[in-house]
Write a protein that binds this DNA or RNA. Sequence first.
RNA 1: UGGGGUGUCGCCAAGUGGUAAGGCACAAGGUUUUGAUCCUUGCAUGCGUUGGUUCGAAUCCAGCCACCCCAGCCA
Length: 575
Amino acid sequence: MTNSSKSKESEGSDAPSSNFIRHIVAEDLANDRHAGRVHTRFPPEPNGYLHIGHAKSICLNFGIAAENNGQCNLRFDDTNPEKESQEFVDAIKDNINWLGFNWSGDVRYSSSYFEQLYQFGVQLIEKGLAYVCDLSADEAREFRGTLTDAGRNSPYRERSIAENLNLFARMREGEFADGACSLRAKIDMASPNINMRDPVLYRIRHIRHHQTGDAWCIYPTYDYTHCISDAIEGITHSLCTLEFEDHRPLYDWILNSLDLNSIKQASDLAESDLPYVLPKQTEFAKLKINYTVVGKRKLKQLVDEGLVQGWDDPRMPTLAGMRRRGYTAASLRNFCESVGVARSESQVDISMLEHALREDLDSNAPRAMCVLRPLKATLTNLPGPIELSLQNHPKKEEMGHRTVPLTSEIVIDRDDFREESEPGFKRLVNGGEVRLRGAYVIRCDEVERDAQGEIAHLKCSVDLATLGKNPEGRKVKGVIHWVSATQGVPASVRLYDRLFTVENPESKEVVDFRTLLNPDSLTVLEGCLVEPAAASPSSALSFQFEREGYFTRDTLDSTDDKLVFNQTIGLRASH
RNA sequence: UGGGGUGUCGCCAAGUGGUAAGGCACAAGGUUUUGAUCCUUGCAUGCGUUGGUUCGAAUCCAGCCACCCCAGCCA
């Protein structure tokens, strides 16, 4: 067999996986199509918060640039002031930095190209490729035809260039009311691609813009703005999602209709000797994950109707929410890489996200102990309080040690105790032994109940010969976590479960996705006890509470006298 | 009845004519003072389907089927 030698060399384990966009970029580089440049951009509209789906696009765009010594711009595609705001601009910038990416140069805004866009509009009119149309939106819809029937030409389609120029200028001057007319590209009302049936380039909106104020009352549409903005910024690879595939002919039509040299002169490459090449749009499938929703409208609805506690509610798939939940930026980046980039629409299983999270947290989160449902236990023969020095990470000596106080009064988790031994139960039972994590083996000698008959207190004896070593002559298989009842710090802990009860809450069959919300997505536990080291204001924020899972301090809700932890994700449970 | 796409293991996803990578999930073992981690092993005679071309097809050709997107002066 000769194939073994061949397959070995390609097994560079950390090499990024192959995907069709990496192929395209590599091929363009090989053919010197952009003079060696790779320049991408992430172009969010500031009309909502970024979510996990955006993370894929961010990682793709910034990643492709970084891999090829290229640049990636952050550009706010802010052509519809009606829905946009500065609040979203700020949140988006913050999220991108948190994810670990830095955009090239200053933040860009499509709105900062409005004057240039207007001039290009004039150019299209002069070339006889655009006209001012007085059809109302409703009329325009009728003229557009249907998916199967061709549209009809607008009665205003043959206005003279001079008249169009005059009208376009007056649109800008504010002479007309909203919707009175629009600038349209003159393409083909019979095109089977509806986007080519004389699409609107400019509409009239007497409304203040979050970046340009009252400077404009006409605003360019996405199709007109996006391609030109890409061209101005010298973007080489314009990556977007599949639903824009039908817009690509228009993207190309607009750029090819403009004088190439005038585009270059308006671009960041105006002074460059490099040959100017128009950007190319490439589409990929957006990220969908089961048991959650990423539709902007749905997320907004959850917030507005108080179904969650805000855009940064830890149950939300927004970057702000996930960050607050304790997701690490690295885990999100790794997840996006593992999901890949392709053109087939897919819905990724949330277990992949959870895997990336646990993988990162397992290797980086310090360990600590926290008892969620305390049950008091007295260690009857412990000579006195002692301080144990426990390793912060079982495999990483370099993460250091912390001191953990052991006192005669401790708490253990109610779930870790049963009166009767049961098959398969490896924790503490009456009369049985168990290891206190990092400390001694104890035996439960007595169970005390309260007036209601509930188990209230255990009396246990310690085998003083078992610190750091196994007892002789017998095997103690169970290990449970614990916290000193007197030194432990009270905390409130929030446990999370998936937000929706069904795999695909966004499916078309769903009438009202709100009825599919999981009523148990949030459980608040009060009176939990956490070891002092994890409660210190100067400690890390994220921990693995041993045998429970990963938790992070909620810095928004924690106060000096009330500590709050959010469960990031539980440990994998294999029993 | 128009146009544009996509179909490879339960979920993602490599593969570009030479005999189906990898990850997640799952299952079975081993190690373990976390029922975690880690390690080992297993997991598509098969690439939507039917034909065709070829010595050879997931890869090329033709037909069919399923699903997704498009009729905002949203992006």
